[in-house]
Nucleic acid binder design. Structure first.
Length: 179
DNA sequence: TCGAAGATTCTA
DNA sequence: AGAATCTTCGAA
């Protein structure tokens, strides 16, 4: 299965009250303090896994939550994992995409920079614009515009009207693929 | 050991 | 708008 990442949120450490790492190292958030480029998978609300990719050097907490992807290959397999769900809703949320890609805690801490069961890689992509807004589903840290998404992409999660929404800016970066 | 909250989703 | 559902963490 292959998808293009179209929506992410950034989380940091003691300077970010919305982050799992805000109060320091715990067993759950340990990957955020570890090597960059690893998966940080956590379970929440009794039902859902969420996938992050760690971003900062060892000892400094940081991760990017993958909130939505655009399905590219293996769509029938994704539908099998999320039966009776229309294509547009297959992977447009952090808990939805982990289910559609069968991502769970067994992939926690996996190296996502190398070819393996779950990894990211650069791919061709035309020009696109990046929208940004406040992060979704958080109680603190609402002042930061740390949610980023491909502007106008229909596979972005349905809450683009979150407060703090800004019109597209930032540049043309190649999006990446998840497998 | 216990209670409350949670980087969500689905249904009514 | 509210329930579901259970892990995690901090406080007691």
């Amino acid at each position: 299965m292959v998808g293009k990442i179209v929506e992410v949120e950034a989380y940091r450490g003691s300077d970010d009250p919305a982050s799992h790492a805000f109060r320091g190292l715990t067993p759950r958030n340990a990957p955020m303090f570890g090597e960059p480029g690893r998966a940080y998978v956590y379970f929440t609300y009794g039902n859902h896994y969420c996938l992050n990719i760690t971003t900062r050097e060892s000892g400094i907490p940081g991760a990017v939550l993958i909130r939505a992807i655009e399905p590219i290959e293996g769509i029938s397999a994704m539908v099998r994992l999320r039966p009776k769900v229309p294509k547009l809703a297959l992977t447009n949320g952090p808990g939805k995409l982990t289910k559609a890609l069968r991502i769970d805690k067994s992939l926690n801490e996996i190296d996502m920079t190398k070819h393996g069961p779950l990894y990211v890689t650069k791919a061709e992509a035309g020009d696109f614009e990046v929208g940004r807004s406040t992060r979704i589903g958080i109680a603190a840290g609402k002042d930061r515009l740390w949610r980023f998404y491909v502007f106008g992409n229909p596979y972005v999660s349905q809450r683009q009207t979150a407060e703090g929404l800004q019109r597209p800016r930032l540049g043309r970066k190649e999006p990446e693929r998840v497998i």
